[in-house]
C-alpha cells in the first residue's frame, strides 16, 4: 500500500491506495500545518482503514507543510501532486484550478497528464479560501453555508477591492447600506472567480477544466468560475484529497523506481 499526505495551510488530508492504485481510504481534517491534525492525519487514516504502518511500502508528503513533515519517505510539491491526482481521476482534464486555504493555483497538463505550466497567486489572500473565510465571518455564516446563501442572490454586489482587508471593510459598508447577505456572498464568489481568471490568463486555459481543493465544494463558486472562464468545470469526487491522492500515486511510482 502507498500513502499520500497533503498538509495544507488550513487542512490536512491523507489518501491510501493499494498496489493497483485503487483508493482504499482517505481523511480530511480542517486543521493545517503546525497543528496536531497535521502530525496525526496519517495515523488516523491508517487506524480507520485498519492498516498497520509497516504495510505502507512508501509514502509521499505534499502541501505547504511538506518541508516540516518528518514521517514520509519523500516530498513532492502540491502542484505536481494535484496534477497527477487529477490526471488519474479525470484523464481528459488539461487545466486544473486549485483554490486552497492561502493560495490559488492554475495547473496545465499535457495529454499524458504531465504538468507543463502553472501559475500561483502572489502573497496576498485575494482569490483564495482565506478571502472566503473572511467573507463568511463578516456574514456571520459558516464557510460551508456560503454556496447555498449565494444561490439565493438576485443582485450580486460588486466587490471592487482587490485586497482582502479592504474588501472586508467594503463588504461591511455594503451590509450597513442594506445589501442582502446572499448578494454579498455571490459578490464574493464573483470576486474570487475574477481574480483566479486573471491567473488563468497568464497560463492559458485548455479544456477540459477541473477544480480541486476545498473551495471546489462550493458549487456556487464553481459556477461563477465557469461563467467567468466561459467553459464547463468538472469537480472530481472528493476534490479536497486530489493532492493527497496524487502524493500516493507518486509514492507508488517512486517505490517502483527505487534503487534495488
Amino acid at each position: 500500500m502507498f500513502l499520500g499526505v497533503d498538509i495544507g495551510s488550513s487542512s490536512s488530508k491523507a489518501a491510501l491506495i493499494d498496489k493497483n492504485g485503487g483508493l482504499i481510504g482517505s481523511q480530511v481534517i480542517n486543521q493545517g500545518t503546525g497543528t496536531d491534525a497535521a502530525r496525526d492525519i496519517a495515523a488516523i487514516l491508517l487506524a480507520a482503514a485498519g492498516v498497520k504502518r509497516q504495510e505502507i511500502l512508501y509514502s509521499v508528503v505534499t502541501g505547504y507543510g511538506r518541508m516540516i513533515y518528518r514521517d514520509a519517505d519523500a516530498q513532492v510539491t502540491e502542484i505536481s501532486c494535484h496534477g497527477l491526482g487529477v490526471a488519474r481521476t479525470l484523464p481528459a482534464v488539461r487545466t486544473i484550478i486549485d483554490i486552497g486555504g492561502q493560495d490559488a493555483k492554475v495547473i496545465r497538463l499535457d495529454g499524458e497528464g504531465r504538468v507543463v505550466n502553472f501559475g500561483m497567486n502572489e502573497k496576498c489572500a485575494a482569490g483564495t479560501g482565506r478571502f472566503l473565510e473572511v467573507m463568511a465571518r463578516v456574514l456571520g455564516r459558516e464557510i460551508t453555508a456560503l454556496s447555498a446563501l449565494a444561490a439565493q442572490s438576485t443582485r450580486p454586489v460588486q466587490i471592487s477591492s482587490v485586497c482582502t482587508v479592504f474588501a472586508e471593510s467594503e463588504v461591511i459598508s455594503q451590509l450597513a447600506a442594506g445589501a442582502a447577505p446572499a448578494d454579498v456572498a455571490r459578490g464574493a464568489h464573483l470576486s474570487v472567480a475574477a481574480r483566479v481568471a486573471g491567473m488563468c490568463g497568464r497560463t492559458g486555459v485548455a479544456p477540459q477544466v477541473a477544480m480541486t481543493g476545498g473551495v471546489a465544494l462550493n458549487r456556487d463558486l464553481v459556477d461563477a468560475m465557469a461563467i467567468e472562464l466561459g467553459v464547463g468545470i468538472q469537480v472530481p469526487p472528493a476534490p479536497q484529497i486530489m493532492g493527497a491522492l496524487g502524493a500516493a500515486y507518486y509514492a507508488q511510482a517512486k517505490y517502483a523506481r527505487r534503487p534495488a
Binding site: 513532492v76 510539491t77 502540491e78 502542484i79 504538468v115 502553472f118
Partner: peptide
C-alpha cells in the same frame, strides 16, 4: 518561491 522552483524542477 520554494514551491514554484521545486514544481518547475519537477516539471
Amino acid at each position: 518561491l520554494r514551491t514554484r522552483i521545486q514544481s518547475f524542477a519537477e516539471t
